[in-house]
Write a protein that binds this DNA or RNA. Structure first.
Lengths: 197, 197, 197, 197
DNA sequence: ACCGACGGGACCGCCCGTTGTT
DNA sequence: AACAACGGGCGGTCCCGTCGGT
């Protein structure tokens, strides 16, 4: 990777953290200058505007989260194991976040509720991807007979993601992992008693 | 109610909506001027700063939500009915919000993650109140034999609130009430099969 | 004196102090509201504008200073005594000011240097009055043979006033009456050795 | 001198004039923008705040005055000549000011009487420097036998500075150099008759 | 005769983005 | 490829003044 590309990546990584903590409107270019150690010119050479940077930083954050999820899914073949890994990924996201500030998709969904349509659209797409991924795990499991056929794959995926996202936010609000643990316990119970054939 | 008090209430109501949609840093005093129809002088007469206004507007929003919840609980005596009413209140909050922008507690929790400690503290307190309220409904139900004694009141409360909040955010992101419906279906099933004695 | 007149006087007294300490542009109507204990409406009922109030407050301050000077001159008949009394009045103005903030004429002269022409004109007139008064004391003394005829009444008056005003400002800057004492010592020596026949 | 340094110096020079005429609270950043021909971004790039700019502008003004005084003292070796040069410097300051608005030390002393403690402290230091300089000239003269040993160096310095400052202010108030001339005549007479051995 | 409430504008500081320079 | 310097505008806050009420 050439020098320029490394700088660009460096900016994205730091900017992703800043935006994830402070939000798009709460973060200033000065914050990003400080976080990156670059001057304005250096940043604007790589990105055309604050919004453009935010969009790419969001993608960066989602990629990071997806990579973390992929790592958790690696070597898990059984659908119930894979589903548990998804839940564990949320726990990991709370305990050892790659980027500070919680779930970028949720944060962006809530902040871009009003204004930024481009960011909102990306958050939507990322959320769809997440839901589809979980749904796919369940559906595949059903096809392979690892998960009860009567289960509603899509609904279950929504329940898993919604409750995990909610628990993540609440745990972060309190600075206490207990809420997340409680929800995870519930989800594990759902997996064991409702999905297992 | 005197004229001054009416104006103050009017500002709070409009500002609560603006802040709930745009967030604290995303909302400008100009936005609030437009929403209230007042000029700066009028707003600053009632509230010393943007932050002070935001704090009181958050309280206003929480009061509204609590009132909506209280209305849903009215005339419900059986614990399972009351618990269902809580879930219904989230559906109502999505379908017919008193204030636009979703759940003020969740929004504030996520946005104030970084900066505003005063807002964050209020969000914490409001979330505690909500969790405690749901937990209380369950605990009371257990005392009265309306809810299975083996259930974990606190954990169940967390699951209900976390999944409902998550579903609310996701439904709002998609502009589609399906995710909320799916989670509600799940919660109703939990209530019927796990809590009912 | 009727109630309205008393209020008006009260405002003038407090406003004179505020303006003398903070200057015209440095003082806000809020400062004067606080100093007077009145609300805006009350002040504006008596005075048409901040500038109008400042003008009258300046006159009030000058009247106070003149009264203090007149009191010092009372019962002094000999010109040298009267001249000494003028000098003493400056010392008194430093030690026990009727209004805080130093000499209103000097303060206004320096602050209104740029903008406020009306205030500047009043400061000019007040300074002329002061110089003329001192000159008159010396000239009368010369007519009565109490002061050496060769002395230049106008020049001496300027020296007395300029050095006393300068000393007052310097002493106030340092919060130390020594500079004033040193100048007074000098002026007393001038009176004794140069003016006494 | 690089471009940036030139701009910074340019801002200081113009701002010093604006502050000296209008005072700290009477001058707005818009005034300084107009005087410098720069926009806010340019000014705030060099100075962090209005106060920071005012502080440095005050230092600039004092440096200018000191340079003018130093120039007047150049080639003067005899203490009485040097003392006369100090007095002449005040006359020059009135007739051909390097910065408009009179003596920055006196102006700042009087305006910062109330609020700005940082400015006040700088005015104090500058006044101390001036008094010490004049006192030093006299004391050196006494050591060299050029000035009568009985003279009180410190007191004489105070008298010279106080009367010159007072005369400067009064002359500026009237727009007439006569008061300054009268005081200078007096000071020359003091020098000739009281200090000359 | 005075207060409470509000309008509208000016204030300082920070913002995002651009440009000359290296 | 990046920095230093600057333009122009919006941000929240405070300002002076007015007007309805009492």
């Amino acid at each position: 990777m050439e020098r320029s590309e490394r700088t660009r990546e460096h900016i994205l990584q730091r900017a992703a953290g800043v935006f994830n903590r402070q939000g798009f409107s709460g973060a200033s270019m000065a914050d990003i200058m400080e976080a990156t150690g670059l001057q304005k010119g250096g940043i604007y050479w790589h990105f055309g505007s604050k919004e453009q940077l935010a969009l790419e930083a969001f993608d960066y954050a989602v990629d990071q989260a997806n990579a973390q999820l992929a790592a958790a899914l690696e070597h898990r073949t059984h659908a119930l194991d894979r589903l548990s890994a998804v839940v564990e990924a949320f726990v990991e996201h709370l305990a050892n976040p790659r980027l500070p500030g919680g779930c970028a998709v949720m944060n962006t969904a809530i902040e871009s509720d009003d204004g930024n349509v481009a960011l909102r659209e990306r958050a939507r797409a990322a959320m769809v991807d997440l839901l589809r991924a979980v749904e796919g795990i369940i559906a595949e499991g059903q096809e392979r007979g690892e998960i009860r056929a009567e289960a509603d794959a899509r609904q279950t995926a929504t329940v898993v993601v919604a409750s995990a996202e909610g628990a993540l936010a609440i745990s972060r609000l309190f600075g206490d992992h207990t809420p997340m643990d409680q929800v995870v316990t519930h989800l594990r119970w759902v997996i064991d008693t409702q999905l297992r054939p």
